[in-house]
Design a protein around this nucleic acid. Structure first.
Length: 282
DNA sequence: ACGAGGTCCTGCGAGC
DNA sequence: TGCTCGCAGGACCTCG
């Protein structure tokens, strides 16, 4: 599910349901998802603790507890944070990784079908180290073109790989990287250090606008992702290139190209609208 | 320092 | 219908 718009949509919907609630009877069903914390330690931290704030950083959920510790959940491909009415139906329980009663007959569940997601428990110092390793939020007010451009400096990587690198910019994943590059008319394999100032400007605006539009649509639902109310997002109807290889380009009608040659990820683009251009051989 | 590729998992759709 | 295969929104690792 999870790029910035999906996680942000989910956080906006479930934050009111979780904030101020006290966690009771926490249960961990899978322990291989924990990073640098023991099951015992995590459960101990959750038990009887109150959720002070629910937020997002990059593509991750952040539950700040009243005691100051933070539970950081990286949902990766199929993880999701939901609130169910107790008792859970079998299908609601099936992929539950972590759950806790939150009062009012409700249960908070972190569910993850593929179990690629991770859970960490961070104290204040660890939180600062964690957030410092990640790039700026692309929809943040202080994320201007100068900041974006500086983040692209010093690499010869393909531009698509660079904008998906969480250390450079937070929250951009495969879907929105493809879409932003199409909007900016930049070939995904272009070497980052060959982008002109004009192209950097176009890409900066494209990233912001595609994420904003996707957020307005409550994210993109390809398969599993659901918003906090269980409804699918709707941005999949507005995708120009992602998942459309072989189909006509919405702008010029040419057949969209598909490849896995950049970082092994599905990449779709229009050869005519996003020409590779002339550049030095890598 | 970089790119390529493997790894962690399960489910689904395409194709035979 | 039933099977196998390839692929999937992410991020980590090792190797060369």
């Amino acid at each position: 599910m999870p790029e910035l718009p999906e996680v942000e949509s989910l956080v906006r919907e479930i934050a009111p349901k979780l904030t101020g609630r006290t966690l009771r009877r926490p249960r961990l069903h899978k322990t291989d998802v924990l990073r640098r914390v023991s099951p015992r330690r995590l459960l101990q931290a959750l038990r009887g603790n109150r959720i002070a704030e629910v937020s997002r950083r990059a593509k991750h959920f952040v539950l700040r507890l009243e005691t100051g510790e933070r539970v950081v959940v990286q949902p990766r491909m199929t993880g999701s944070l939901v609130v169910y009415r107790a008792p859970l139906r079998p299908d609601q329980r099936r992929y539950a990784v972590l759950q806790a009663s939150i009062g009012n007959g409700e249960t908070m569940v972190y569910r993850d079908i593929r179990r690629l997601g991770t859970i960490e428990l961070l104290d204040e110092a660890q939180w600062h180290a964690y957030t410092a390793r990640i790039g700026p939020e692309p929809l943040g007010e202080d994320f201007d073109l100068r900041c974006f451009s500086a983040r692209l400096d010093g690499t010869t990587q393909a531009i698509k790989k660079a904008i998906m690198d969480q250390r450079r910019i937070a929250g951009v994943g495969n879907i929105y990287a493809n879409e932003a590059l199409f909007r900016a008319r930049i070939h995904p394999a272009r070497r980052t250090d060959t982008l002109s100032a004009r192209e950097r400007g176009r890409l900066y605006r494209a990233i912001r606008s595609v994420l904003t539009a996707a957020l307005r649509a409550h994210g993109t639902t390809i398969r599993d992702y659901r918003t906090g109310t269980g409804a699918p997002g709707s941005y999949q109807h507005q995708l120009h290139v992602y998942g459309r290889a072989g189909s006509p380009c919405s702008h010029c009608g040419a057949r969209l190209s598909g490849t896995h040659s950049i970082d092994g990820r599905a990449t779709t683009f229009c050869r005519r609208c996003q020409p590779r251009g002339r550049q030095a051989r890598p």
